[in-house]
Nucleic acid binder design. Sequence first.
DNA 1: GAATTCATGTAAGATGTTACATGATTAG
DNA 2: CTAATCATGTAACATCTTACATGAATTC
Lengths: 175, 175
Amino acid sequence: MSLRHALLGLIAEQDGASGYDLLKLFEVSLATVWPATQSQLYGELGKLTEAGLIRVVEEGPRGRKAYGITEEGRGELLRWIVDVPVKPVRRDDSLLRVFFLGLVEPAKAQEFMAAQIAALGRRRDDLAALEGAIDWGDDDLSVYGRLVMEYGRRMYAMRAEWFRWAAEEMKALDR
Amino acid sequence: MSLRHALLGLIAEQDGASGYDLLKLFEVSLATVWPATQSQLYGELGKLTEAGLIRVVEEGPRGRKAYGITEEGRGELLRWIVDVPVKPVRRDDSLLRVFFLGLVEPAKAQEFMAAQIAALGRRRDDLAALEGAIDWGDDDLSVYGRLVMEYGRRMYAMRAEWFRWAAEEMKALDR
DNA sequence: GAATTCATGTAAGATGTTACATGATTAG
DNA sequence: CTAATCATGTAACATCTTACATGAATTC
């Protein structure tokens, strides 16, 4: 149930945010680590309110509801961050396909690998653009967000390197 | 719908495998890139059969059903591998928590980072053990499986390095 | 006054997890 | 004969995606 905690965390950091604000926050800050859709978000806000982990602290124009975290919510959030075992990352679409590249013609396989490397380059550029577009401050979300950005850079670089290496290995196999 | 294609791929490589065989194969070869549970697997085998992408080629003892891929299934598999755009990896439980480490006491945050590094070490060792336990041949699954193993090694190393770096950055912030 | 942004919600369907349920065959 | 392994399936529930639906406030 990490979406729940992602929301809880954002509300803890940005007190008084609305569902709409949180949706934007997801797009700019959590998009790379925990994407969420609008419908998921509003649904979860309702459940969190019902569970007493957050509450509506203010109602504004256009039905706007500003949320704040409750003491109970903060307790649950902190407990989750440090005490709940993390679930290791899994499910990697492109790696899954690599497993089956023996089934396609070598030229097609090389094309696939090249496409992955190109896509990684684009994503690295998107990340840089996002980094440039964000108004970084010295709030927690900025500070830790920058650390996570660096992770993204290293991740893309490592993957691109591996794809280049694996493509060469595959070429060698064909000979 | 990648589970569908993972199954299709395994059946293409290991003709005549049963649901049970495929489950074991998932555990040893696809576990790190695409985990699946037993119930998901049997359900999907039924759907794939109904869709005409695979078929029961033999029935054995204890109700065992051996599956084979159909021409249609092979077509769908190849189309998926090279033509369907890959979905980028996302959702990273530990990175999500890093985002919120500003909310916990510095000592607890350092503990969290240390625990992640330790967990990565254990997973690297598990991977090495798995690699040693597998009877590697020169079949496609072995050849490409080894490439993916190398990816796992690099991935764990990169993550451990980043966690160490980020932990130091965080220490510097506290001063 | 028209377009954009702000703002919230519901519904249907796909996918994934956990637990339950059953029984045949083989190895020791 | 007993335990482990082989073998398949269902049910309930949680989670995620895509699409639909509506309307107020602001900006140009």
